[in-house]
């Protein structure tokens, strides 16, 4: 295990940012800390980097106790959401910064910086100032800068949070490929479940200062530990007392045996997907999403007011909420 976080707690005044958190982060992998804003994930990352101090608990990095170590002694690379580019230094000098601090020979610095600039595709921008780069380029520069000192762990705090949707998507694919090349233990914070599912080897779901679940993207998606994890990883709806994913519901016209009968209330078509809201006999509104093809296969007769039946497909994950469906009926599907 590369990073061990043991029983870490952190308060800011009355606010509990982390409440007895323990996580083991494996070497050489890309781990996502996923959770809603204010859930404590950034605080945990900053504690690992030494930029915040835990009130309680211990941190060890690569087997070495780092709890009381100052950030400059931890050998971690840190990438900030807003880049934290050194504005008065050129791209080259930004990347060279950590090596210059370590007083490495000039030739070695030049070689390493050029290698890194090539890695992040910024060779031709070496002499520019950060203000002359786009957001995505600045963040790649920040990554190269963090990698320059050959950190034992690379920590990224919402690295793509300040970028627009398209660049964001490009950069996260690029980060995945970069990680496959460089293999440095990487932890990144995100509140975007799609980003975490797409990029990470392992995801730690953090909410209200506690770890909700740790696992691979598949484990989290297929076997969510509780309704929070299930809700956070994508849209959900409730069928009876069970929380399910709308695309895991099978919808048929008529009332076949073994399924829950319902009446179509609303049909919304969004691009390739059709969202059908149906009300069950108990008065519960259930959302089912179908592909356009699946919807057309139902036959032309299905419209508002049509009788249909709903069934959870075999093997699809569901979480028991233990809540009374009739009382919850109004809230579901919104």
């Amino acid at each position: 295990m590369s990073i061990e976080v043991a029983n870490v707690s952190k308060r800011f005044g009355d606010f509990v940012a982390l409440d007895d958190v323990s996580v083991s982060i494996p070497s050489g992998q890309l781990t996502a800390l996923l959770g809603p804003s204010g859930g404590g994930k950034s605080t945990l990352l900053r504690i690992i980097a030494g930029l915040e101090h835990p009130d309680d608990g211990r941190i060890s990095i690569e087997g070495r106790d780092a709890t009381l170590l100052r950030p400059q002694r931890r050998n971690v690379g840190f990438v900030f959401q807003h880049y934290a580019a050194f504005k008065h230094l050129s791209v080259y000098r930004n990347v060279a910064f950590g090596l210059e601090i370590r007083k490495r020979p000039k030739d070695e610095i030049r070689e390493r910086v050029q290698h890194l600039l090539a890695l992040v595709h910024l060779e031709q921008f070496a002499d520019r100032l950060p203000s002359q780069l786009s957001g995505g380029q600045r963040q790649r520069m920040a990554l190269a800068r963090a990698l320059a000192v050959e950190p034992s762990v690379l920590l990224l705090d919402e690295p793509f949070g300040a970028l627009d949707a398209k660049v964001r998507k490009e950069l996260r694919e690029w980060l995945r490929r970069l990680h496959d090349e460089v293999h440095v233990t990487t932890v990144f914070v995100t509140h975007d479940q799609e980003e975490a599912l797409e990029v990470a080897d392992e995801i730690v779901v953090i909410n209200e200062g506690r770890v909700e679940q740790i696992g691979s993207p598949d484990q989290l998606y297929d076997a969510p530990a509780n309704d929070f994890v299930m809700r956070f990883l994508g849209p959900v709806t409730q069928l009876g007392s069970r929380l399910v994913r709308p695309h895991d519901l099978e919808l048929r016209a008529g009332e076949p045996y073994g399924a829950m009968p319902a009446t179509v209330q609303r049909i919304v078509r969004v691009g390739f997907e059709v969202r059908v809201e149906a009300v069950t006999a108990a008065g519960q509104t259930v959302l089912a999403t179908l592909s356009r093809t699946q919807f057309q296969a139902l036959g032309i007769g299905v419209g508002v007011g049509s009788p249909v039946s709903l069934r959870l497909v075999d093997g699809a994950p569901s979480v028991d909420t233990g809540e009374d469906p009739a009382a919850e009926a109004v809230l579901v599907g919104t």
């Binding site: 950030p71 971690v76 840190f78 580019a85 910064f97």
Partner: peptide, 23 residues
């Protein structure tokens, strides 16, 4: 942020002040 970034890259307080804050 810039000062914290300098720290995480190994710069001490004096180096951070001289190389990052002062400019």
């Amino acid at each position: 942020d810039q000062e914290l970034a300098a720290h995480s890259l190994g710069a001490g307080s004096v180096q951070t002040f001289r190389r990052i804050t002062l400019p």
